[in-house]
Design a binder for these strands. Sequence first.
RNA 1: GCCCCCAUCGUCUAGUGGACUAGGACGUCGGGUUCUCAUCCCGGAAACACGGGUUCGAUUCCCGUUGGGGGUGCCA
Length: 440
Amino acid sequence: MNVRTRFAPSPTGHVHIGNIRAAIYNWLFARHEGGQFLLRIEDTDRERSTPEAIQTLLDAMNWIGLDYDKEPLYQSTRIEAHLEAAEQLLSKGLAYKEDKGNTGQGEAIVFRMPDKDMVFHDKMKGTLRKPAESLNDLVLVRSNGTPVFHLANVLDDIEMGITHVIRGDDHIENTYRHVALYEALDAPIPQFAHLPMIVNRQGKPYSKRDGDAFVGDFREKGYLPEALFNYLTLLGWSPGDDREKISRDETISLFDIKRVKSAPAQMDLDKLYWMNGAYLQAMPNDQFKQGCIAVLKKQGLWTETLSEDYIDRVFDLMRERIKCFPDIVSLAGFFFTEEYDYDEKAVNKRIKKEGALDRLLKLKDQFVDLAPFDVETIESVLRGLAEDMGISPGGLIHPVRVATSGLPMGPSLFEMLEVLGKDRVIERIDRTSARFNPNR
RNA sequence: GCCCCCAUCGUCUAGUGGACUAGGACGUCGGGUUCUCAUCCCGGAAACACGGGUUCGAUUCCCGUUGGGGGUGCCA
């Protein structure tokens, strides 16, 4: 069978995370089956469907890696066909005109639901049925002459030759009615699969009010498209074994719509963050560098004069500690500016303690004449001084770290100081000392 | 109200009548490695919503209850 699926969003300027997941499943199914994945843009709401909104949609799909076959079909080009089909249903007696009297604009065209229980087979949920008496007739064309979603949706799916409709399970109710429409239109009925929704912490459908509801939100926060893709893929589906980090190609070959869960799933941002870290760790060095640099530039921390050697060494130090590109700013910003912030708690604990500054300055004195200023010499001087002072190395290590980076944690201190360089280390210790000296 | 869908650790899930003292992952807690953080390693706590059936035997099948969601639009 020649499988053909589609993604049919209405462009609103944002792409909802639930919609993109539905798109992903359609895409995966089509790719797995060697079929086609098409895009239909439901742009009949001219108010919202601006060129920018459409571009946002296309960008989001491109970013997360959903390529589509053929040119997108714009629903607005199909209105004539929709109206014509409604007329035909009318002439066949399968629909009727009605004026509820409250519009004053004319008569609507209403589809007469057949007097029988509606049944369809859902690829995930099994056989679904609904009694005839619970299905009302369905408006196809409004009294103002515009076709409604149901008519347009079904007609366009027929036009595009869609064989499998994979969508959110909020559409189950519609499907009973759509099936009746397919029959009335004498068109082959596609297979359906209804995905559970993505819900928020309260178990309610994920909405924009929950934040992080749109693809763009994750992109802006520096998430990797492949990580989001992988995470979303696992939100409702699993390969059946313990694999979790699964490449795109592997997912395509493993994907089975029958293995999609039928219960709603909740976004777990912690796990997404973890997965992003897994992809970041696995990425080639150069790509990692470029990603970090992009964020630094955005934050105004980047200077073109930095030597290649310096940035390589910084990124080497940070490589294992970063799970999302923006982390480079909070964890390593001090490598790129003298105006780094001091962590208040760390300062209280390591700098403002009795005698801490004196010890720090003594260490600085040792640094002044140190040559070379490298990991080995720094470490031996520091440990030697600690021993002379009768304190543990940590008694010096922690204060220097806070003084030179502002942070209570970070990369290996000796390497960090070496990369920073002697002059800057001394300067930073002096500056810190002046700033927090109580006797000033 | 009526109709439809759903129900395993906090979260994502494995599980399709016995292999389950219910497995994995994220998170969390404890320990180890270490100059801190991260990584890594070891270990712990943590779930089959409830009640009836069916069966020699139910997480697994059926019914009901409860809870959540959706629909019942001239919205999509």
